[in-house]
């Protein structure tokens, strides 16, 4: 799981082009949107597409998205249990 958390952090930094942030700067328990990383709707769309491309996870339900994007840890847990790639 630790490897997946690290991988997700690196992917998020890459797809969102967070140039000044390192994986160590991201708190895996902090909210991704609003506080924490302070991501917004464009970033959310990037994450939806990233999950689809990298892990074969198609997120279609907004309620599910809200649940998954709570934090890196929650996201990693969901990816581990639902990945197709």
């Amino acid at each position: 799981m630790d490897n997946l958390v690290k991988e997700l952090k690196e992917e998020i930094i890459k797809v969102l082009n967070l140039e000044d942030i390192t994986p160590e700067d991201i708190d895996e328990t902090a909210p991704l949107f609003g506080e924490g990383l302070g991501l917004d709707s464009i970033d959310a769309l990037e994450l939806i597409v990233m999950l689809e491309k990298n892990y074969g996870i198609k997120l279609e339900d907004p309620a599910k998205g809200k649940e998954i994007f709570q934090s890196i840890n929650v996201m990693a847990d969901y990816v581990a249990n639902n990945r197709k790639k």
């Binding site: 709707s41 959310a44 939806i48 997120l59 279609e60 907004p62 998205g65």
Partner: peptide
């Protein structure tokens, strides 16, 4: 505000 439109756009 709940970003549900993003899922609709992506779908």
């Amino acid at each position: 505000d709940d970003m549900s439109h993003l899922f609709e756009i992506n779908n």
